[in-house]
Amino acid sequence: MTPAGSLLAAHDLRKAYGSTPALDGASFSVHPGEVVAVLGPSGSGKSTLLHCLAGIVVPDSGTLTYAGRDLSGMSDAERSSLRRGDFGFVFQFGQLVPELTCLENVALPLRLNGVKRKQAARTALEWLERLEVDDTAAKRPGEVSGGQGQRVAVARALVASPKVVFADEPTGALDSLNGERVMELLTESARSAGTAVVLVTHEARVAAYSDRDIVVRDGRVRDPEFAV
């Protein structure tokens, strides 16, 4: 069932919180280096789909393969290790550790992967420069603007050279100018690094930065690749 050449593919995912179904037979796939937008009204199950794809939440049923490995059969530790090594994350807000400086925040995924502090700081600074926020390096997240903070978050998502970046409403808390810039930098950096991006959004203008889009409605996905 996995579409040929896909990096991450899900088929017939189901997940319920209590008695409310969040995903009701969702299928999805993303190819290496591809930017896919997940659209849909709020409450449609977009975020749950993202959490399932990223191995944060275990679906109740369905198959989930990443690079040929069965994700749904993995232990928590294996999934954590996968998230550390192969995935990156950008959320809407509240994702930077407030007591760490922006540089330390960006270095965090590298440190989690066991990179030495100095080396991690060097790489992190490079990414801050690429995202044009190297002036925030020594500041704490509380001291930078929302747009800057979100760029720091993008830098953090990309710093460990992940294969997939999961972005959940990355511009939700930003004005359109800042939002556009963040999207531009995110998709540009991801494309140049060959990183796939799964982009959850309800804004069409943000989704327009993708190569392809799918729509989630009532926990079901309309993915043209699966459409018969």
């Binding site: 954590s80 994350f89 509240g94 995924p109 989690l112």
Partner: peptide
């Protein structure tokens, strides 16, 4: 809570 969830998403170990 939210921050911790984010850190978990990043693959942070419980031990850490």
């Amino acid at each position: 809570k939210r921050l911790l969830s984010v850190l978990v998403a990043f693959g942070t170990r419980r031990v850490t």
